[in-house]
Structure formats: C-alpha cells, structure tokens
C-alpha cells in the first residue's frame, strides 16, 4: 500500500515538475496577451481620441494592473523635461521580466516613433504593430505549446518510470 502511495506521489511530482518547468512559457504568453489588450486600448486613445502618449499610458495603467508598473514608470519619465521616449521605453520595459528582448525592442521602437507620426498616418502605424504583435504571439504560442507539451510529457513519463521501478 505504501509503495503504491509512494509511486502515485512520484507520478504527481513528475507532473508538478513539468508544470513548474513550463510556467515561464505560460507567463510569457499571458504577458503577450495582456500587452496586446493594452496596446488595443492605447490605439483607441491615441488614434481616435488623440490623447497624448503620457495620458494614454496612465489610463492603460489603470485598466491593466499587471502592466501598471511599466506604464506608470513610462508616463512619469515622459513628464520630465528632456526625456527621450525611446530610451524611457527601454528602461521602463525592463520592469516586465516576462517580455523577451525581441518583444521589448519592438515595443520601445514603436513607442519611440508613435509621438512623431502625424495623425493621418497613425492608423496605419498601429495596424502594422497589431499585425506584428499577432504574428509574434502566434509564433511564441506555437513554440511554447510544442516545447511545453514535450517537457510536460517527459516529466510525467519520468515520474511514471520511477514509479514502475519503485513497484
């Protein structure tokens, strides 16, 4: 009986280890989704309401608690005279460790550019970002799903193997 219980614990442990190992991938996907929703809100504020970037970021900070730290830090930096928006964006985006270097680079390049583009070209600019972000999210999802399944399966199988060996 004790052997069976131990074997079960080992299998559950294997599944748990798999979950832990694949957690960063899930976090990254969640962060990308959260950023997408945040960007959609920013797009509305900038393109349709013509709200300045700083104000739009403050509103986004209120609506997206997970990104509040980044958005508030960026909005505060923008309120200081002589701030370079792109540099401020790079510094602020380091506050979200879930983003990869590529994603942070894409966002900071976009934020550095958005304020200088005339209103008539804003919709096209945001369309481009939306498309790029969707592609990025899809790629990450495919990779993370495949890798995650593999790792999860391996961990579960390892747990089962150890359990069989124990029995």
């Amino acid at each position: 009986m004790i052997a069976w219980a131990g074997a079960l614990a080992v299998v559950v442990g294997g599944v748990g280890v798999g979950r832990v190992l694949t957690q960063p991938g899930r976090d990254r996907l969640r962060a990308l989704g959260e950023w997408r929703r945040c960007l959609e809100q920013l797009e509305g504020e900038v393109v349709w309401r013509r709200r300045p970037v700083g104000e739009a970021l403050k509103l986004a900070a209120g609506a997206h608690p997970e990104l509040r730290r980044v958005a508030e830090r960026l909005a505060q930096a923008l309120a200081r005279p002589g701030t370079d928006l792109r540099e401020a964006a790079v510094a602020a985006l380091t506050q979200d460790p879930r983003l990869s270097a590529e994603e942070a680079r894409l966002l900071s390049a976009f934020l550095g550019q958005v304020g200088t583009v005339p209103s008539g070209q804003q919709a096209a600019l945001w369309d481009g970002l939306r498309q790029e972000w969707r592609d990025l999210e899809r790629r990450v999802k495919e990779t993370e799903t495949a890798d995650g399944r593999l790792v999860q399966t391996l961990c579960t199988l390892a747990g089962c193997a150890v359990a069989i060996w124990m029995l």
Binding site: R50, R51, P52, V53, G115, T116, P118, Q122
Partner: peptide, 10 residues
C-alpha cells in the same frame, strides 16, 4: 517634442 508631450498628433 517634449513640450508637445511627445505627441505631435495630439
């Protein structure tokens, strides 16, 4: 640009 709140469009 800073005085325009980094937002020419606005």
């Amino acid at each position: 640009l800073g005085m325009a709140e980094h937002s020419w469009y606005a």
